[in-house]
Amino acid sequence: MSFTDSNISINLALFKRGDEQVFKLVYDNNYERIVGFCMQFIPEREEAKNIAQQAFVKLWTNREEVNTCNGIRAFLYTAAKTDCLNYLRHEKYKLNYQQDILEKREKLLNQEILESFKFDKLEYMELEEMIQNALEKLPEKCRQVFVKSRFEYKANREIADELGIALKSVESNITRALKILRKELKDVLPSVLWMF
């Protein structure tokens, strides 16, 4: 299992024509990642799912505008990003009247992070490729743990049991993976959005 495993090649002409089977394939291969993405920024699970589903509806409505297979995923992430941001901005007004400083700070931070994402078609292709390459560079054990944790929905406890290692070791391997990935991806994931 890898980051791009589901980057299946699809018949773009059929996709644009609105072929049900092709669209179903696109949905099946991207749904979990788009929901996963939204949930990282929207704590309200149902809302996050709703936003992710809307991304697919938008993709369907605008399918004729998509020109490459890679553009599909970039489109989905862009739509998810936009709607998450709209949601958070709207929530911000409510938060002004709230006492929960922590929650407010979390939302503002999430907003800032979302804004710094760039999902231009070419940049997204490059990003996906670099994440894939970075994952492959991870030490074996580290990669195993990270892949199970991130792509196979495994809890740390389960991973520890499966691999016969200590819970602490699972945590430290994830930390290690994150540190290595960050180093590898620093240039493609800027924390600030440069306007010029």
């Binding site: 099946d28 749904y31 929901v35 993405f37 991130r150």
Partner: peptide, 21 residues
């Protein structure tokens, strides 16, 4: 922020309800 972005891009949420297109 960099860590969080990697986390978000590698995030998968299991489709437990089996929502289909």
């Amino acid at each position: 922020i960099e860590i969080k972005k990697i986390w978000a891009l590698t995030s998968r949420e299991k489709n437990v309800e089996g929502k289909t297109w």
